[in-house]
């Protein structure tokens, strides 16, 4: 028999997604869960006070406590995606799906701090804020820091851009300011100037602050996705870099 807790979590996770897409139909949930949909389980969730059913069991929404639980799972999932995508590159979906069911909130927060409190997952969906984000916690040295704090004239690879404004992201993308690209901070005063792919760009401090870079050189060159996807590169960083980080910070 499959793990009941885990299946409940999958349902809650899907319901969170429906909330983001403003969907409430049970039928929709059934569709999008495909074979994994379990009517009995939905009833159990309702009994647990996690979901509320209405309109003759045709509409389903998360209750407050359900939302809290779903939020925790989504956060774990998306943070995991961020970690696997930024650090390891390549396929991250399966790993994240496993991860979300096994980690504690504390561990998720630690990873979140390590990554500099990312706000979106690699698909561009919002990562729910954790306690650590609200406190803006810092380890002594984050792996990922905003470009505003990077050293002048040092090449740094962009980890991600902490920005939910699609238009702005597109504009930056057009200028090749995007994850994976190396940038250099030229000056902070009187105006921020960065160098990216051979061009110098002057921009507002607010925007530079959303650009997050690896603080000490990128972990590894990301595997080229257009190579055959099976061809795995050795990942020396995972053992080296993170272990080094572990020693330095005492914990991750």
């Amino acid at each position: 028999m499959r793990n009941r807790k885990r299946e409940k979590e999958e349902h809650l996770e899907r319901l969170w997604g429906m909330k983001e897409g403003e969907q409430e139909a049970v039928e929709y949930l059934e569709d999008s869960m495909k074979g994994d949909f379990d009517a009995q389980l939905v009833e159990e969730l309702a009994e647990d006070g996690m979901v509320a059913l209405s309109e003759g069991n045709r509409k389903i929404v998360l209750t407050e406590s359900g939302e809290k639980e779903a939020r925790r799972i989504i956060r774990a999932h998306r943070i995991a995606e961020r970690l696997l995508h930024d650090v390891l590159g390549g396929e991250f979906e399966t790993g994240a799906c496993e991860f979300e069911h096994t980690v504690t909130s504390e561990l998720v927060d630690s990873i979140c701090i390590l990554l500099g409190h990312p706000r979106t997952c690699p698909h561009g969906m919002a990562i729910p804020e954790g306690e650590c984000c609200r406190r803006s916690e810092r380890t002594t040295r984050n792996m990922v820091i905003p470009l505003t704090e990077a050293e002048l004239n040092q090449s740094a690879r962009i980890a991600y851009i902490n920005c939910r404004d699609d238009m702005l992201l597109h504009r930056l993308d057009d200028l090749q300011v995007r994850p994976g690209i190396k940038v250099k901070l030229h000056q902070r005063y009187p105006c921020f100037v960065i160098e990216c792919e051979g061009a110098s760009i002057a921009l507002d401090e607010d925007i530079v602050a959303t650009i997050c870079v690896w603080s000490q050189g990128p972990p590894v060159d990301r595997p080229k996705l257009e190579l055959s996807p099976k061809e795995k590169k050795p990942r020396p960083w995972w053992s080296k870099g993170l272990m080094a980080g572990r020693k330095r910070h005492g914990k991750i």
Binding site: G17, G21, S32, H123, G124, L169, D173, K224
Partner: peptide
């Protein structure tokens, strides 16, 4: 199309384009 979507289309298209032009 978007009702059933689990990702931000713009970003995924950008990522694909980025990979293409990096290559």
């Amino acid at each position: 199309i978007k009702g059933n979507l689990r990702f931000n289309i713009g970003q995924v298209i950008n990522q694909q384009r980025s990979r293409w032009l990096d290559r």
